[in-house]
Amino acid sequence: MNDFFSNPVLVKALPEAIIETLQMVGISAFFTVLVGLPLGVFLHVSAPGGLRPMPVINRILSDIVVNITRSIPFAILMVALIPLARALTGTSLGPVAASVSLSIGTIPFFARLVETCLRDVHHGKIDAAQVMGSTNMQVISKVLLRESLPPLVAAATTTVVTLVGYSAMAGLVGGGGLGKLAYNYGFQRFDVSVMIVTIVLIVVLVQVIQLVGERISRSLDHR
């Protein structure tokens, strides 16, 4: 124990790494939901048999964008997106720049999860809402999203957990955070205590996210 607290790397670099990781996860989680949720809704609504079928656009978005992005391994995507990150944030280093590729990597993933959640809303509920005179927007907000809120929260939780993993990878190509710490000290300098501490911290972070997410999801579930 004493060993850990006297380790200068842990005392100096660890707090900063934690903050960087939280920044990366926080920023990219925000943008993933911001873009992924509407994208998922659109994919569902514009599908054949949906509220407002738009076969061509749906096909393009669904097949090309989503599938291609998902089939490129994240490590490659991250490197490929460095120019974009630089264009958007003015730098290719640091948690903010890394958040660009993190978000782009998880948006399609989350959108697909959203689409699946919405598909599980019983069609009778949509019929009922339409017969009572709902607009399409009202069906989306008052039925599709509201009725699938518990699984949506669960999907967001899964996505954030995935982001924690991705953020460790992003750390290696300039993002910083716990991933970089583990790599620089734990791997390159064989500092076992740094390795252990970062692993424990990442596991705890994942556990906390999972726990909070499940708690929220369950409290919203009245089925």
Binding site: K125, D127, A128, M132, E147, L149
Partner: peptide, 11 residues
């Protein structure tokens, strides 16, 4: 309209 399975919103 009244439906066979009521089709209420669970939330």
């Amino acid at each position: 309209m009244v439906f066979q399975h009521a089709n209420l919103m669970d939330s």
